[in-house]
Design a protein around this nucleic acid. Structure first.
Lengths: 163, 163
DNA sequence: CGTAATATGATATATTGTATCCTTAACGCT
DNA sequence: AGCGTTAAGGATACAATATATCATATTACG
């Protein structure tokens, strides 16, 4: 399970996100911050409309769905959130506050049990094996980012117990 | 580019599909055959509604969208078609007429250029590398099937020419 | 300040996918 | 063949996801 972030951690993350945007000549506006914040606080991926509901619950003004999609697109471009195509949901990037770089080789491990998502880097080994695989049919890979289903440690452990 | 199937090849494929269903105690009904047939004849993935339109264009009676989804689900269970989650589209399986077995380790190479799809088996090497990668964060993979973007041979070749 | 670029609001609509209830077709059995 | 059971498909409604477009507001910056 993805751990909950406390207010202090959240603040650190949001500041880091702001810096990251600034470095790209972009701005982390109030709305964008709000959307990102909701995703950061969620222990599992959220749909665009779930994000919308959370945003509109926590403020007086109401945001249209269109804005959420626009903002999610923006945040995705900034590598601050990732879209999971297998579920049409969004997660905040796990590497916002560290100096981690994305090389288009990030993978997502989706837990069948608790819906949590683990973001991992491709190993050189895996990456090369996939490129080689593609090469056998003449394909030249442009991106490597995919979603693998499985069972996380927590759910593996709890499977034996209780029920 | 996926090659076009001629009527004779199509017939062979459909017969093989019929046999495959029978082996599972399932039936390839007229409607299911129709849906599968449309997918087999398409050189690129089709959305459910594209399939629907093709079906309703080629017959007098009209099928509701619900039926297409039901049938696509059925065909997917029978491993006769695959759903590409990155585009919400469907392709017919490349291994209907051969004795190929699916081990939940089929991958799809999606060409950015021509939208064609190549279905390939995971190599042992890639599969193991991915399992190992997952294991480093305690994940146990349940399925391995994903979609990789790239450029196919044809599009690579034509990129240098012409324009 | 004025203006261009960026961001957001508002509204409409397209696309993808499900729920539900009912009718029809196939199958298994005496 | 007749009958009950199950599987398949039709009809309708609607939910969820996503985009197009035009108007307004905010920001950057000369």
């Amino acid at each position: 399970m993805k751990k909950q972030v406390n207010p202090k951690e959240l603040d650190v993350l949001l500041r880091a996100a702001e810096v990251a945007c600034a470095e790209n000549g972009a701005r982390l506006t109030q709305r964008r911050r709000q959307v990102l914040s909701e995703l950061m606080q969620s222990s599992s991926p959220l749909s665009a409309y779930e994000v919308l509901d959370l945003c509109n619950r926590s403020t007086t003004s109401t945001m249209p769905a269109m804005s959420v999609y626009r903002i999610l697109d923006f945040l995705e471009q900034q590598q601050l959130v990732h879209r999971l195509s297998s579920s049409s949901k969004y997660v905040s990037c796990a590497h916002i506050a560290c100096d981690h770089k994305h090389f288009q080789k990030t993978h997502f491990l989706l837990c069948d049990g608790c819906s949590s998502v683990e973001e991992v880097d491709a190993t050189e080994e895996a990456s090369e094996a996939l490129e080689k695989m593609a090469k056998t049919v003449g394909f030249k890979l442009t991106t490597q980012q995919f979603e693998l289903s499985g069972i996380c440690t927590t759910c593996q452990d709890s499977a034996g117990e209780g029920l």
